[in-house]
Simulated assay, not measured.
Amino acid sequence: MLDALSLDQMRMFLTVAETGSFRAAALRLGRVQSAVSHAIARLEDTLGVALFDRGGHRPVLTAEGKALLVHVRDVLLRVDALRARARGLGSGVELELSLTVDVLFPPLLLGAALAETSAAYPSVGIRLSAEALGGPVTALLDKRSQLAIVVGESFRDPRIALEALTAIDMIAVVAASHPLARAPGPLDAAALADHLQIVQFDPSPLTGQRDIGVVSPRTCRVGGQDIKHAMILAGLGWGRLPGWLAAEDLARGRLVRVGTGVLGRQARLPMEAYLGHRLDEPLGPAARSFAAALARLCAGAEATPETTKASP
Rank of each mutant, 00 (worst) to 15 (best):
W238C: 15
W238A: 14
L255A: 09
L255N: 06
G276C: 06
E248S: 12
R257K: 13
L236V: 06
A246T: 04
T260K: 09
A273I: 05
L245D: 03
V258D: 10
R257L: 14
L236S: 09
E281W: 07
A251Q: 08
A247G: 10
G239N: 11
Q266R: 14
G264I: 01
V262R: 02
P282L: 03
L250H: 06
L255D: 01
D249L: 10
G261N: 10
L269N: 00
Y274L: 04
A267L: 10
P270N: 05
R257G: 15
P282K: 03
L250E: 02
P242K: 04
P270I: 02
R254M: 02
R252V: 03
E281N: 08
L250G: 11
R240H: 14
V258T: 07
Y274T: 01
R252D: 06
L241I: 12
A251N: 03
G243T: 02
V258F: 13
Q266Y: 05
A247D: 04
G261Q: 01
R265I: 07
L263I: 12
W244V: 08
V262E: 07
V262T: 03
G235F: 00
P270D: 03
G261V: 01
G243F: 03
W238T: 12
M271H: 07
L250S: 11
G276F: 02
V262M: 03
V258P: 15
L255I: 09
R265F: 08
G239F: 11
R268A: 14
G235M: 01
R240M: 15
Q266V: 08
W244E: 03
A273G: 06
R265T: 09
E272Q: 08
E272P: 10
G276L: 02
R265A: 15
R252C: 07
A251Y: 05
R268K: 15
W238E: 13
D249M: 11
E272K: 11
D249C: 13
G261M: 01
R252L: 08
G253A: 07
G239C: 13
G235E: 00
P270K: 03
R265Q: 10
M271D: 07
D249Q: 12
L263G: 10
A251W: 09
P282A: 09
E281K: 09
V256P: 15
L255T: 05
V256T: 06
Y274C: 05
R257C: 15
R278L: 14
W238D: 14
H277T: 02
V256N: 08
A251I: 06
D280V: 07
Y274K: 02
M271K: 07
D249A: 15
R257Q: 13
A251C: 07
L279P: 14
L275I: 02
G239Y: 09
A246C: 13
V256G: 14
T260W: 12
A251P: 05
D249P: 12
G264C: 10
D249V: 05
Y274P: 06
M271L: 13
G239P: 13
L241N: 12
L275R: 00
E248Q: 11
A267W: 03
D280K: 08
Q266K: 13
G261R: 01
A267H: 05
L250K: 05
G259N: 08
E272I: 10
